[in-house]
Design a protein around this nucleic acid. Structure first.
Lengths: 265, 265
DNA sequence: GGGGGGTGGG
DNA sequence: CCCACCCCCC
């Protein structure tokens, strides 16, 4: 099966790209971030017409996540609170950044990690608190289920080879040692592995390029969109690649899709 | 020579349409309204690249007029004040709605008449005052020059055959008897003739269709974009037609161009 | 630079 | 519906 993650930067303004890409490709599951639309206005019909079921968790203007799937997902859960309880989660579910569902024996978790704005800012603090909560969330789910796949826009580049020009980026949002450590702690320490790095060792492989200053043309990008696999899911991994093409289209998202292939069971 | 009038509803968002239309057509002079851009940001280069000189009178956000011409225009004048004096004009030159220039012996006057919003409103009063001033302006110019061509968006349909469904539109902005009379008084009473009606007698010939409620598809339009000719210029008139095609393009202006053909002298 | 939102204008 | 503007966010 093929699973994609794509931060579409508004599912409504990217609907034609999404339709085109889903028609060109053969995807089983597509995890979207930054849908930026309330559920009532999510473009269900055109995506159903392409053969997808939609599990959606949207909000107005910002954030919003969705999972498209050829087969309906079981046990769809929205937010950390669905697993940890609303009290434990506090303000971290106010923004729609977490949606999860099960496809056969595989638990799919789709995340849109907060950007964090600037080191030391209030938003940065929110990002770190959010990642701490993510660890609890994954710990609980990991105790319950064996095959787990996590993907999304992590807004963190794990290593220097994941950034176009890493020198001096220790104080940059998305590449600070503190953020990297928080992501390792929240995800990698639980045994999940970065699926892309099972197959690709090189640098200059990016999934996001700023709209400004011709970053895509100059390939000044970041690999911040990831797939993670639990030990048992990792055994099924066949390939993981970045599809740069949608980023070349007219009025693209600033992110491009990352596709993971898993062996059928 | 061929002269067009086109309310482009923002010259920047309509630049591709304008380039396409100017490439398809052979125009000598193109009068634009609602350019909605300050002079410093007017897209001079792409229009010069198509072989046009530009006389521009813009403002931020609203209004704005321009004349594109294959040959540079002589004696370009902006506003009523250039002819009547600033004192006589008061607040009527604050909005950029008037630009004029001479091409050979022909005086070209490009106008964007105020819309007027609603009958009885402050904007309506401004429209009527503006039209009174227009009469003075044209009277002075008519005393000075013989061959005069006036065009633009008049925001008034002169006759019932110029509206898609005239019944009950006496209290509608753009078709009230008061506005029609004001336009007759300001322009027609000075001897200028509606060039389109020299050639076309029929109804259902429109130059503007509201963006809302599928007005274009249903041809619920208005003929509010006009060419007027002085007696001596009228002698040169060969044809006048509405080019509906640009209104069929993607993201069109709500107006479509009206083209006048004059015999070369 | 390109999404979202809102308001004001037509 | 589709401009413009402003502000917020990435």
């Amino acid at each position: 099966m093929r699973i994609a993650t794509w931060n579409v930067n508004s599912v409504r303004s990217r609907l034609e790209h999404l339709q085109r890409w889903l028609t060109d490709q053969t995807l089983d599951i597509v995890c979207l971030q930054e849908t930026k639309v309330v559920d009532e206005q999510f473009p269900l019909e055109p995506l159903q017409a392409l053969g997808y079921h939609c599990a959606i968790a949207g909000q107005k203007s910002y954030n919003g996540v969705a999972i498209l799937s050829r087969q309906p997902l079981a046990d769809v859960q929205i937010g950390f609170g669905a697993v940890l309880g609303a009290e434990a989660v506090g303000d971290l579910d106010e923004q729609k950044r977490v949606i999860s569902g099960r496809s056969g024996d595989l638990r799919i978790i789709n995340l849109y990690v907060p950007n964090g704005s600037e080191l030391g800012s209030e938003k940065y603090d929110y990002k770190l608190r959010w990642l701490t909560c993510l660890q609890q969330y994954l710990t609980v789910l990991g105790d319950r289920e064996s095959q787990i796949h996590i993907c999304g826009d992590f807004n963190i580049a794990l290593e220097d080879r994941d950034i176009y020009d890493p020198a001096g980026k220790e104080t940059h949002i998305m590449s600070s040692p503190t953020e990297r450590e928080a992501l390792r702690q929240s995800v990698l320490s639980l045994g999940f592995v970065d699926a892309f790095r099972l197959f690709e060792a090189g640098a200059d492989q990016f999934s996001w390029w700023d709209y400004r200053t011709g970053a895509f043309r100059r390939n000044r990008g970041w690999r911040i969109d990831h797939h993670y696999l639990s030990e048992s899911a990792k055994a099924r991994a066949i390939a993981c690649h970045i599809d740069r093409e949608p980023r070349t289209w007219e009025k693209p998202s600033d992110h491009t899709p990352v596709v993971l292939e898993l062996a059928d069971e």
